[in-house]
Design a protein around this nucleic acid. Sequence first.
RNA 1: GGGCAGGUACCCAAGCGGCCAAAGGGGGCAGACUGUAAAUCUGCUGGCAUUUGCCUUCGGAGGUUCAAAUCCUUCCCUGCCCA
Length: 401
Amino acid sequence: MNINDTASFLKQGIQEIVTEAELVKKLERRKKENKPLKVKLGIDVSGPYIHLGFAVVLRKLRQFQDLGHTAVLIVGDFTGKIGDPSGRSKTRPQLTDAEIKKDMEQYKAQIFKILLPEHTEFRFNSEWSDRLTSRDLIGLASKYTVARILEREDFAQRLQQGLPLYMHEILYPLFQGFDSVAVKADIELGGADQYWNLLVGRELQREFGQEPQVIITMPLLAGTDGKLKMSKSYNNYIGITEPPNEIYGKTMSIPDAMIVKYFQLATNYTDAEVKEVARRLKAGDNPKDMKSQLGKQIVKMYYSAEDAEAAAQEFERVFKHKATPTELEEFILKERKINIVELLVKTKLLPSKTEARRKIAEGAVYINDERPTDSNLEIIIDEPIILKVGKRKFLKIIPGY
RNA sequence: GGGCAGGUACCCAAGCGGCCAAAGGGGGCAGACUGUAAAUCUGCUGGCAUUUGCCUUCGGAGGUUCAAAUCCUUCCCUGCCCA
């Protein structure tokens, strides 16, 4: 592949690049010097949980690795502690080093489902940020204007709406940008919502006399609700290390209108293949089948084809034919006789007795396929019974007295 | 430092002495239906007890009152204007 082909390959599926010419230049130089490019990606310590949305960016990063470049993952342990500029300024709990270490282990287990360990470097930004003096900080702040900071949409909006905007939030992008200076990043990747932040890094590098990084943003994947971007805090995510049944099931729960987008962003389908999916949907193919194909495809990426098939079959069993799942969680009950409401709370299927009574009245509680209507029902557990709440919560109660 | 407007349940937001566990919307959960955990429609959405009941919750702490989210005092927090 020549340099231009490489560049256009790397450009596939991206949202935006600043600038392509610079990317080509960097690729050329790297080839001449035979040195890998440093591709920076910021990650957050607080939620060590990788979902399909973030995977969009990681998979792009992987392409760089496949070409021999180095992924530099910046763990935002410093910026994480000063609070996120995304609205309310609840002070984050200070993470201890031990906690961070533990989180990182979990994180690595997930991230190397996509990235290549031998081409991945981890850097903690506290390494350099903790050492900045007040003088350094003022110096850094003097390289960027308030007006430019306020270009950022959510800052501008909050000011306009009379909502609080704190000093530390304004500084946050500077620290994040300074990370690029500290590691001398050649390229920085991020989600489309990070575009502005990445530009700050570019500017600061220029100010510090470095060649500015190329920035590449990836499209945002909407969550399972089909509206907001996929995020752990919106609880609309599909985690790449979730069990196959969960990944498949959650995929089935996306709105039909999202099917094509998901094929595009969450699978390795080529443009032609995605078009074919769109065509079939338009031609009146059952969206359910397309979603099933999508779910299987995603499970296959992070597990195997067999797991994908099994997940699909299990889904049909449980939700279409309303059978009980093949594998059930078990709960050993000490009492032989117990009130239904107490049982539901004790097993944590429901959070409170009032809620349990409500759900019984709604007909959401099943005992071995029967729906009790009386909250005073006493159950005698002589043999295992299957307790079900709603469509998805199952529990096998085993006598243990 | 001064003036004004605000702080209500997971979120937004009404209420401004009793009829307030607190309207409405969002979100969440459930039921029906179905092509699925899609869509749509309907119900529920503080806890405990269960006939009326009790407890916790309207920024914090005190107070007035038979009775407070609602009135008073004070403190904390946010925004706007002035300095």
